[in-house]
Computed example of a mutant assay.
Amino acid sequence: MNSERKTLGQLALRTVIQLLFMAYAASLIYPFIWMLINSLKSNQEFFMDIWSLPKEWRWDNYASAWSSANIGKYFFNSVWMTAIGTFTSVMCAAMPAYVVAKYKFKGSNIVYALAIVGFLIPTVGTFGPWYLLMQQLGLFNPLGVMLGYAGGIGFNMIILYSFFKGISWEYAEAAFMDGAGHFRVFLLIMLPLARGGIVAVCIFAVIGIWNDYFQPFILLQDTSQYTIAVGLANLVEVQKYSANYTVLFAAMWIAVLPILIAYLFLQEKLISGFAMGGLKG
């Protein structure tokens, strides 16, 4: 009898927890649905009732956002910056992670310790020196943004360090016996063996760079070079005066849709990759 009551109690508790998580998930999803519904209304209809379904589905709002609001230009700027930034950030993290994990030299532990200590330094405290450095180097342009993403010692390095640490060195020794050099071993053997971590870090980098607002906002002074995050912020300021909010909602959906699709299809690889890296570390 007591065991039955205990089982019923556990079932009730589990049900309550599941309902709470479902309610929390609905609270996260609903703003996107609301934004989608209102992006398909006319501006007049939006101000009449922000909660109703569209009487006429205005798909041309997306065309207006793409062309007249310059979201298309911002979108392609984000695409190429995200592609290059992801490649450089992952490779610049993979190389030091591999060297520190697999080669013993004086100071290797210090390099790893610096990567850990970097998390303890408040980012706000580095804004002033960083701004002056970029100003003196003349990097208020896309090149400056790309260099900012190429920092190798950080979160990506720590994750990849765990993966390389768990790979047997026998693979490299066999390749060395066949005449392969160090860089060839890294590129053709170690990187493929660490592909779980590489994929996870790439996904994380794509999401972070696509959504990054601070660096492009500070360093990109030409509006034609704006990324979609900065372009949306600029569009919000414009819409304060024109009050064409339906086009703004359409632009927001264009901005978030690629990341939502990427996360929906790759979330398992992202979670499993980080979990594997943590277990190996």
Rank of each mutant, 00 (worst) to 15 (best):
W57Q: 12
G166D: 06
L220T: 00
E56D: 15
E4D: 15
K41I: 07
L36R: 10
P122E: 10
F46H: 08
Y103F: 14
W59A: 12
I189K: 06
P54K: 12
L40T: 05
G281H: 02
L114M: 09
V99K: 07
Q239K: 11
A69G: 10
A97L: 04
G181P: 00
K41F: 09
M146E: 14
L133F: 09
F87Q: 03
M134L: 06
F186L: 01
L19Y: 02
I167F: 04
M276T: 14
E237L: 02
G107T: 01
K269L: 13
G9Q: 14
R58K: 12
F75H: 00
F214T: 05
D222S: 08
K280G: 12
V201C: 04
S272W: 03
F32Y: 14
I218F: 06
E170T: 04
V256H: 04
A65Q: 10
L120E: 06
I159M: 15
M81C: 10
N77H: 01
G9D: 12
I261P: 05
I33V: 15
G278D: 08
T126I: 13
F265D: 08
T246N: 09
S224T: 13
Q18L: 13
L8Y: 06
L40W: 11
V247T: 11
F214K: 03
K240I: 00
N109Q: 08
I228V: 15
L40Y: 07
F47G: 06
P54Q: 12
F105R: 03
F155G: 03
P31C: 11
L279P: 05
M276W: 03
S67M: 11
M48K: 14
G196R: 11
G152F: 05
T82W: 00
M134N: 01
L160H: 02
N244S: 08
L11S: 13
G196S: 15
I167P: 01
F87S: 05
M276A: 14
I261L: 10
P31L: 10
L132Q: 08
L279C: 04
A174P: 03
A94S: 06
G72K: 02
F21C: 04
S162L: 03
